[in-house]
Amino acid sequence: MTVLSPPPAVRPPMAGAIGQSVRDSFIIAKSGLIRVKRAPGMILFLLIQPTIFIVMFTFVFAGSVNIGGTTDRAGFREFNVVGIMAQTVIFSVIATAAGIADDMRKGLVDRFRSLPMARGAVLTGRTLSDAVALALTLVVLGCVGAAVGWRFHEGIPKMLAGFALMFLLGYAFTWVGALTGLAARSPETASSAPMLWLLPASFISNAFVDPTRMSTPVRYMAEWNPFSATVQAARTLFGNPGTGARDAWPMQHPIGASLIYSIVIIVVFRTLAVRKYRRTATS
């Protein structure tokens, strides 16, 4: 073995910590995208369940579910597709949590933590590449939905805004996933434990049935559920039915509520996750 030459000079420090943080985050995100490209199974995994749900719900439940006082089949299809797209978006928790728990187990997180790099960059990078996967998932689900009869009625800009709000909620939930992945003892726990709250959170909402027909306490929970705000906002922007519940503030102002909820989730969980990342002892 010959001798290793002296190390190359490092770049001069970028303007402030934020510059370095952005750069390091993008470097990690790029490696995450290579991972998405080489292991597309993750996206398929994210897509299988909602695709089945969209097709199944559309053909089984259409005609039996009362939305805003009518059991119109076409109305239910539009109602249902948005609910399932939004549910898929918050399930992004699982992919991020499992990915980060796996990095921890393999010692990759330790390697990154021993490098002189920006603090939050590993987590920011991973959530960004997972967000790209999430965006692809939304595009595919939009197409599946269109195939079974989902339509938007308020023009393309509002349609895009609706998807943007769902995407933002999904990105917020990747940060919940980052914290979950750091706290979990194994990738298996990281991918199964979130189900315990994801299922109630997505069903006690306006995603699948009209909350106006729920009992009062459940209806209250459903209408204040952060997830419901995004569903309501997307339906409003798409011009889809089922936006009748108007008692709670988030249901009256769904777009603002959706933005506020998503931003609060990002700020809170990013802070917690980055703190945990800095402190975590893996042994």
Partner: peptide, 24 residues
């Protein structure tokens, strides 16, 4: 544990670490 990213090639792994050491 060999702390390498399994989905990256050997070359990509080393370039990634080099970049994070703030190399050009």
């Amino acid at each position: 544990f060999a702390a390498v990213d399994e989905f990256l090639t050997g070359r990509e792994n080393l370039q990634l670490i080099g970049r994070l050491y703030q190399l050009r």
